[in-house]
Computed example of a mutant assay.
Amino acid sequence: MSGNPGNPSDLNELRDIIRQAQSLGAPYPQDPAARITVGRDGKIYRGDQAGDEPVSKVHHGTFAAPSRRAERRLAEDQRFARTHMPEGTVYIDEPDVRGWAYSIVTELDERYTLFAFFDGREYRVKLVEPALEQLVRRNVVSAHDGHLYPDGTICLSEARGAGQPTLEEAYSKSVLWALGMGFVRNGYRFPFAAEGPFAAEGR
């Protein structure tokens, strides 16, 4: 960090400015000496940079951290996955991908690999294998008939693209979907939906 006038002299000074604002509950301090800004050159300044150069205000509040509610939900989901989901279920924890990957074999002896995740509001499930979403993209199977969107997301409820309120319900309904999809792949209507009879297409 440079020592130019208006720049915090070191990281300790920058830390103190931020922490002072947080302790006062002031995300946007009024006193220029008690706030920082960022210039278009990417440099951090204390107060407003002199001259005509535009600066961006900085929210001095605490960086986001997992809430206790989110931590409790994750702990409950981990217990459920450990005791109720298939052996070999893996929790994937990557910056942009967090959820459970699991594989099942249906009563039709078909294997499916699925991925369940919480999107901030509900639990959704995506099909990993087999890549049946390609059938939807090519209009071999309609999204309506297969309850599967072109991006591989399974439709688990009446609302478009909606999931289920818990990991338990998302998992159990994804198993039911996989069995129903097996019938669709063999030329029958999806058997677990009210809109169509359990009969072969065209009969």
Score class of each variant (00 low, 15 high):
M1T: 05
M1N: 07
S2C: 01
G3R: 07
P5F: 02
N7C: 06
N7T: 02
P8W: 10
S9C: 04
L11C: 03
I17R: 04
I18F: 05
Q20D: 12
A21L: 02
A21F: 01
Q22G: 02
Q22L: 03
L24D: 08
L24S: 06
L24P: 01
G25I: 02
A26Y: 04
A26I: 03
A26C: 07
P27D: 01
P27W: 02
Y28I: 04
Y28W: 09
Q30R: 06
A33P: 00
A34K: 11
R40T: 11
R40M: 11
D41F: 12
D41G: 08
G42A: 08
K43I: 04
I44M: 11
Y45F: 15
D48H: 07
Q49C: 09
Q49A: 09
A50E: 15
D52F: 14
P54F: 09
V55Q: 15
V58W: 09
V58D: 06
V58I: 11
T62R: 10
F63A: 09
A64P: 11
P66I: 05
A70M: 09
A70E: 14
E71C: 13
E71W: 07
R72K: 15
L74G: 05
A75C: 03
E76M: 13
E76S: 12
D77Q: 12
D77V: 08
D77Y: 09
F80E: 07
A81T: 06
A81V: 05
R82A: 11
T83R: 00
T83P: 00
H84I: 00
H84M: 05
P86N: 03
E87R: 00
T89Y: 00
D93N: 10
D93S: 08
D93M: 08
D93A: 10
P95G: 03
D96N: 06
W100N: 02
Y102E: 01
V105I: 03
L108V: 04
L108N: 08
D109S: 00
E110W: 04
Y112I: 00
F115A: 13
G120V: 15
V125N: 10
V125T: 15
K126D: 12
L132M: 02
E133C: 00
L135S: 10
L135D: 09
L135M: 12
R138V: 01
D145K: 04
P150V: 01
G152R: 00
G152V: 01
I154G: 03
L156G: 09
S157E: 11
T166I: 13
T166E: 14
L167A: 11
Y171A: 07
S174C: 09
V175T: 11
L179E: 10
G180Q: 11
M181F: 14
G182C: 05
F183Q: 13
R185G: 11
G187C: 08
F190M: 15
P191D: 14
F192Y: 15
A193S: 12
A193V: 14
E195S: 12
G196S: 13
A199W: 09
A200H: 13
G202T: 12
G202F: 12
R203Y: 14
